[in-house]
Design a protein around this nucleic acid. Structure first.
Length: 431
RNA sequence: GUGGGUAUAGUUCAGUUGGUUAGAACGCCAGAUUGUGGCUCUGGAGGUCGUCGGUUCAAAUCCGACUAUCCACCCCA
């Protein structure tokens, strides 16, 4: 590696072909699972006005979050930000196009790269991909349940077993505010009560975060704090009960996780997460929840919403940890080899004609010795090699070699073309 | 943002207490019947040892800085 080579930006990974099949596999599965539940794809820009994310993040996490955004001023002197998540852009698009006026109910999914300026580590990149789904306009807990059920279906579809959802109820906005205020009071003692410096800071910014402090003495102190449950009003309580009964109705395994707290304060009522072992510290593969106030916050009509997003790279790590592999593309049935320049036109024409009729056919793009060519054919895993040299080209024939049986016969090129077409599996080409 | 580990061939890694031309496996290319693959054997290409600087007669090896990467913390929309 010379010193003048250019390398990718920190935290931004290339996805080489061997890796890309994982992405293709997961995206295809998402389209299947979400598509059959009547969710439709939405694609929004990677770049949005900074204002959008500043508003969606809310004020308490504003300072923290803005440091982790890729924000820049464009030549027109507007502040733009690479999207750090998918939901805000989706909501902006729906408001902008008046979609909520046609119908408040929307079921959508999206996939694509997100950007966060964080220090990279395992399962945490600066550019990473998410697959997400959102339901708008449904206050009923069936929406929460469907989102969660679809997550579980998706994970099972791609090969995961033993999926368990961690679930919590944060209550409505007023409940949460009351609880946060109470927590701040209780935590006011700060360091003198024995809290670690980080928890003292959390008490100020996002008190509920003290619940996942890892300090021994904080964990002990946390046990004595008032429980969020005591502050949750009857409507949110009933909502959560309905959700649980729906999950139980379709036997979705879940556990209540009282310490599951989301960082941003637009969540209300339901929050959930699915974690996977073997991923190190960044083990949350799926996260989501209800955000009944966010659409209004972004200037739209009051519209409830629920959503979740899947961290694609993390999911791929989890697949590898469990030795789950995407089904590979089947190798082409045949490879056409030209032994010299004189044979290339004939070989080239034969391969093209076969491909046009739907047969997956490999072509060695430079003349090579039969030995090298067959080696390449073997490596690709094809069953048949069609060999054409100057002699064959002149006579309008080709050598049809079956690599598994080792037999070889001379056929006319027209016959070779028919055989190549026949080799292609009709179940693959016709749907 | 904080703390720690690592950086040698395309890949995964060896490399003794600093000491000649830096190795292996896999992969790649070629030869072993001048137009025939897989297995085997033989050979070849490919590294200014992450970058820059320092210590030393001598640095892949010791020291420093920088960069990247990994692990954990912080945070996690």
């Amino acid at each position: 590696m010379g010193k003048q080579t250019i390398q990718s930006i920190r935290g931004m990974e290339d996805v080489l072909p061997d890796e890309a099949v994982y992405f293709q596999f997961l995206e295809a599965a998402a389209r299947r699972v979400f598509g059959r539940a009547q969710y439709r794809e939405i694609r929004t820009p990677l770049l949005e006005p900074t204002e959008l994310f500043a508003r969606s993040a809310g004020d308490s996490s504003d300072i923290v979050v803005s440091k982790q955004m890729y924000t820049f001023v464009d030549p027109g002197e507007r502040s733009n930000t690479l999207r750090p998540e998918g939901t805000a852009g989706v909501i902006r698009a729906l408001i902008e196009h008046g979609v909520f006026k046609e119908s408040a109910q929307q079921k959508l999914y999206y996939t694509g790269p997100m950007f966060r300026y964080e220090k990279p580590q395992k399962g945490r990149l600066r550019q990473f991909n998410q697959i997400g789904i959102e339901v708008f306009g449904v206050a009923h807990a069936a929406a929460d349940a469907e989102i969660i059920v679809l997550c579980v279906e998706f994970l099972r579809e791609v090969g995961f077993r033993d999926v368990c959802v961690k679930l919590n109820n944060l209550g409505d906005r007023e409940d949460r505010q009351a609880y946060n205020n109470r927590l701040r009071e209780v935590l006011a003692g700060g360091a003198s009560d024995g809290w670690c410096p980080q928890c003292v800071e959390r008490a100020r910014l996002n008190p509920m975060r003290v619940f996942d402090c890892k300090e021994q003495r904080c964990r002990a102190l946390v046990a004595g704090l008032p429980a969020v449950g005591d502050f949750i009003g009857e409507p949110a309580r009933a909502h959560f009960a309905t959700l649980r009964s729906l999950l139980e109705a379709c036997e979705v395994p879940y556990e209540i996780a009282p310490d599951l707290v989301r960082g941003l304060d637009y969540y209300s009522r339901t929050v959930f997460e699915i974690v996977q072992g073997g991923l190190g510290a960044q083990n949350a593969v799926v996260g989501g929840g209800r955000y009944d106030y966010l659409v209004e916050e972004l200037g739209g009509p009051p519209t409830p919403g629920v959503g979740m997003s899947i961290g694609v790279e993390r999911l791929i790590l989890a697949m590898k940890a469990l030795d789950l592999r995407p089904p590979g593309e089947p190798p082409p049935a045949a490879m056409v080899l030209a032994l010299d320049d004189a044979a290339m036109p004939s070989a080239f024409r034969l391969a093209s004609a076969a491909r046009v009729s739907g047969a997956p056919v490999a072509l060695d793009l430079q003349p090579r010795s039969p030995k090298a060519g067959l080696k390449a054919a073997n490596r690709l895993g094809v069953r048949v090699a069609v060999i054409i040299g100057a002699d064959e080209a002149a006579r309008g024939v080709a050598q049809w070699k079956d690599l598994s049986e080792g037999t070889q016969t001379e056929v006319r090129v027209e016959e070779a073309l028919e055989r190549l077409k026949a080799l292609s599996d009709p179940s693959v080409t016709c749907r």
